[in-house]
């Protein structure tokens, strides 16, 4: 195998397709986190919510066989955990970083506990099937890369313009942005900071629940302890990388996914010497962090991020 193999059409298509699949769960989680952070709440519990969403939806498919019900379960789990996170960080005004880590630990432990008690050993399930889009999926190159995925992968990419539209074109988006930048000003205009933050945290957590489900019932169709392997934390980093814009998050998720796919392909084809393959495996994280350091201007950071709001404080 040589360098020329990397540039064969099927390998390149494979890398691109793989990058898109890998970006799926990051997109749900990071877009959700974007909403939360734009309103001023840092939710570090994303990974825990993902794990419980992943397990809950996996378990529903395992017992009922219904992917639809399973997705609903992930939504519900995300909402409930979001409500909890919002209560702790908005109403009780707890330090957000710590309450987020608490939520993560809860999700990590609880998903594993339930898995051990209810399932035991890894058991594959039938998740969302591949859903090639008629006609479009037949287009050479583009078809296999973009139009031969499962429902949740399409959903993740559709979410980006929807999120950008909500944030930039709607009155709700305006309120979210204002609350994250200057909650006092929003409050002085009769906007309920609490209401907006509950909404975004719950919406963000719901998307985190779907992010977990996209792994367990669409991409991997299995559950295992710590299935997310820290993806939720990478997702939080991607929000910074994307400068709190859905399109920026998309760029970050694709960059991460494509580098990971490229490294995998390089390893597979023997282009990366075995002696450095372990280091190469860390490249997605390293490059993303480097890009983060180099490109991010914190100018766009929501000024009230991590700051609880109380009138007259």
């Amino acid at each position: 195998m040589g360098l020329s193999d990397l540039f064969s059409a099927s390998v390149l298509i494979g890398i691109a397709t793989s990058g898109i699949r890998l970006a799926t769960s990051y997109l749900y989680a990071a877009i959700g986190e974007t909403f939360s952070q734009r309103s001023g709440v840092l939710n570090l519990g994303v990974d825990g919510i993902m794990l419980l969403g992943a397990f809950g939806s996996y378990y529903v498919v395992l017992t009922t066989g219904s992917q639809g019900l399973a997705l609903a379960a992930a939504l519900l789990i995300g909402m409930i955990l979001g409500l909890f996170m919002a209560f702790v960080s908005v109403t009780l005004k707890a330090e957000q970083g710590i309450s987020g880590i608490g939520l993560y630990l809860f999700g990590f432990g609880m998903s594993d506990l339930l898995y051990q008690k209810l399932v035991g050993t890894p058991r594959p399930i039938a998740g969302f099937p591949k859903l090639p889009i008629p006609l479009l999926s037949d287009i050479p190159v583009i078809g296999p890369i973009l139009f031969q995925h499962n429902l949740l992968t399409y959903g993740a990419f559709l979410l980006v313009p929807v999120a950008a539209f909500i944030l930039n074109k709607t009155t709700l988006g305006l309120q979210i942005r204002a609350v994250g930048q200057n909650p006092e000003a929003a409050d002085s205009l009769g906007i309920s900071v609490t209401r907006i933050r509950y909404m975004t945290v719950i919406a963000g957590s719901t998307l985190a629940g779907i992010a977990g489900a996209s792994l367990s019932i669409a991409l991997l169709n299995i559950f295992q302890q710590n299935l997310t392997n820290g993806q939720g934390f990478i997702a939080v980093a991607l929000v910074y990388f994307g400068a709190w814009r859905p399109t920026g998050v998309l760029a970050g998720a694709l960059l991460y996914g494509l580098i990971a796919a490229l490294v995998l392909a390089g390893n597979t084809l023997g282009l990366i010497p075995r002696s450095v393959s372990d280091i190469a495996a860390m490249m997605p994280a390293i490059i993303t962090i480097l890009a983060l350091v180099v490109t991010v201007s914190r100018v766009r950071e929501p000024a009230a991020l991590t700051k609880p709001y109380g009138r007259g404080e």
């Binding site: 195998m1 193999d5 099927s10 390998v11 298509i13 494979g14 890398i15 397709t17 793989s18 699949r21 890998l22 769960s25 792994l215 991409l219 991997l220 299995i222 295992q224 710590n226 299935l227 392997n229 993806q231 990971a260 796919a261 995998l264 392909a265 390893n267 597979t268 084809l269 023997g270 075995r274 393959s277 372990d278 190469a280 495996a281 860390m282």
Partner: peptide, 27 residues
Amino acid sequence: ASVNVNYIGSFSDVALASEAAQAQQAA
């Protein structure tokens, strides 16, 4: 026969193992 060995750098990353298998299939 050629054997493509891909060490993915993790004992626990199921998603990456899945994609590594996809890459093997593509190869």
